[in-house]
Nucleic acid binder design. Structure first.
Length: 393
RNA sequence: GUGGGCGUAGCCUAGCGGUUAAGGCGCCAGGUUGUGGCCCUGGAGAUCGAGGGUUCGAAUCCCUCCGCUCACC
């Protein structure tokens, strides 16, 4: 397989990197945000829409597609790319996260996880080998190791046991993966413990994967805690391999974590928020359902170059959401994904110009993610937590 | 016209003698991070159709009126 990742530039004042991912279905400029399309569709959009908003790679999900329609069907229909008519790069998640978040967990052992389908309640058994087999049949360009994702708040002993199980599974994934032209990424675990993250990084990088993910974050921990773990973990990963932070995608998180040296991100947040009427703008997040938009003639973001902002007023989107019209989902999703893609483009350009540190400072100063009260609450939570956690690290 | 039923927040209802009238929808705001379009959390909003009476106490019981509705003429 040809070189998967190449560096194009680095920032002199932070750890930010710009690079290129090269896959059988095209190349992707990094840092990159990958929209989530679990069921073989980024909800409300067509592949043409995705190309227009500048989505490089998209993320599908082995768990969802295995339960429905099943990989046999997708295989007979020519694989996932052909099935969903998207000829760009695809990354599939193994389903580890879903087993532990969606499915009714029955039993987990070193062998694998027994759980109930969230669709029909049937009993399912997923092992590292099966997760790889499913992902090989789907045919994504990048696939993920099967891992365990313990909830935030578990104590250190449980996090360590879970991490060790993920390590065991990572080794089995590595040795059962056969398909050429498909890169298997290992996943670093260890919760919010810096020490466990170090151990996990040493173990997983020892298995020599073509790329590495930081998993088990963004599960309810305060943002500052997540940043500090990413800051400690990302630099330990091999410089010449791509680094993927799983499940992170708010604008401020993207900028913060690029600065720690992360190259790839995915998150349901931009698309999910869009379907609930929340959109990003240059200054802050907006809730289009708010009454104040009823007469707003301008676009939701005057700086945005997406088709939604070009053609429609905020007042019209407000109306569509009030009526629960289907077009609302599409227009808001187009905007949020364009916002994320454009943010990544600007970030990348500033890294290449070596002006990223200034860009980051200016962006974070202007962009207000949520309202002040909610942020203060988060900060308080973090301070209390830091007090309680002192003995652990 | 006669007899019955019903009038409780913008809408639909619960409460049928006992603190401060409850809930759903809607409305006003928050939240949402390896996606179920769901969901969660706050908030505002009611002279209980009007007037009179009984009672320590009435949305609740009685009387009159008004409005809606059904049946019979």
């Amino acid at each position: 397989m040809s070189q998967l990742f190449s560096l194009a530039g680095t920032c002199s004042r932070t750890r930010a990197r710009a690079g290129t991912l090269t896959t059988p279905h095209g190349s992707v400029a990094t840092p990159a945000f990958m929209p989530v399309g679990s069921q073989g569709t980024v909800k409300a959009l067509t592949p043409d829409d995705l190309r227009v908003v500048g989505a490089g790679m998209i993320l599908a999900n082995a768990y969802h597609l295995h339960l429905r329609p099943g990989v046999e069907i997708i295989g007979r229909l020519g694989g996932l790319h052909r099935f969903m008519s998207w000829d760009g790069p695809i990354l599939t998640d193994s389903g580890g996260f879903q087993v532990f978040s969606l499915g009714h967990l029955r039993r987990v052992s070193d062998e694998g996880a027994v759980f109930r389908s969230h669709i029909d309640g049937s009993e399912q058994f997923l092992t590292p080998e099966l997760a790889i087999e499913i992902q090989e049949k789907l045919g994504a360009d990048i696939i993920m190791a099967f891992d365990e994702c313990p909830p935030y708040g578990d104590d250190l002993r449980i996090i360590r046991e879970s991490m060790e199980r993920s390590h065991l599974w990572a080794r089995r994934c590595r040795s059962s993966h056969r398909r050429d032209g498909q890169a298997l990424f290992g996943i670093i675990h260890g919760g919010t413990s810096v020490e466990l993250r170090r151990q996990s990084t040493a173990f997983v990088t020892g298995l020599d994967f073509p790329g590495y993910a930081i998993g088990g974050l963004s599960l309810g921990e305060p943002k500052e805690l997540m940043y500090s773990i990413v800051e400690e973990t990302a630099p330990l990963l091999p410089e010449e391999r791509p680094r993927y932070l799983m499940g992170v995608g708010s604008p401020e998180d993207l900028v913060e974590c690029v600065a720690c040296g992360v190259d790839m991100f995915d998150s349901a947040l931009p698309t999910r928020l869009a379907r609930n009427g929340a959109v990003f703008s240059r200054d802050r997040r907006l809730n289009l359902r708010n009454a104040r938009f009823a007469l707003e003639e301008g676009p939701i973001d005057p700086d945005c170059d997406c088709s939604t902002c070009r053609d429609f007023s905020a007042a019209y989107l407000h109306h569509l959401f009030r009526c629960e019209e289907l077009l609302a989902y599409r227009l808001a999703t187009i905007h949020n994904l364009r916002f994320a893609a454009r943010l990544m483009e600007q970030v990348r350009q500033s890294i290449l110009d070596d002006s990223f540190a200034r860009f980051k400072e200016a962006f974070l100063k202007r962009y207000q993610p949520t309202d002040a009260e909610a942020r203060a609450e988060q900060k308080q939570k973090w301070l209390e937590l830091r007090r309680d956690r002192q003995p652990l690290d």
